[in-house]
Amino acid sequence: MADTTFRLRVTYGKTGRLRFLSHLEVTHASERSVRRAGLAYAVTQGFNPRMKVAFGPALPVGTAGLAESYDVWLTRYLPPADALGELRRATPDGLAPIEARYVSEREPSLTAALTLAEYEVVVGGPDAGPDRVRTGLEAVLADGKLTLQHKGTPKVFDLAVFLPKEPTVGEYPGGSMVRMTTRMGASGTLRPEAFISEAIRRTSADGAVTSVTRTGLRPEGES
């Protein structure tokens, strides 16, 4: 690896049909985009050299993202606008890069820094209007805790920790839309559709989560 490397932070979307990709599929696809773009990427040292690249928090299969990120280390400086242009040319539309900028080596990793995730969850169904969904959410929140099955074992989420602020419910054609923020950490991640599905179940409403979009990721303390 060259002595000096340049840490390029790329922000991209995961949208349309490509929301069905898994995190691993997105990471492979992004590495291939970097190679196709012809960027001078750094390679890890060791027996099995690989591209030096680090990804932000994983998105599940089926969940879209509007501002996901990865860092890739380059061995030659390239103006960010040029890097963005080359990456856009070399990436399928559904994963198109939106922004590229250099960040300091001193900055913490993406997964360490970005612990708050903002979501828009669309609920559809004959009686999945905002009032009904809000009632369900309030019932779940009143418990303070939510128990979900994870690979056959129950996992308890303390909602005061995992939901740093109260979700809001608004109008949406054919149902409603929930805007919510979750906190990710060493103790796990609360999946928005699991939380909302539980809320719908509480009201016995005829409705279901029809789409989940992560609209942004941010560090603690920023709004």
């Binding site: 490509l18 069905f20 985009s33 089926g62 990436t91 399928p92």
Partner: peptide
């Protein structure tokens, strides 16, 4: 696609 294994089998849009 929301209820099947490995939906990327069916989505197309690869490079």
């Amino acid at each position: 696609l929301a209820r099947v294994e490995r939906p990327a089998r069916y989505t197309d849009r690869e490079w």
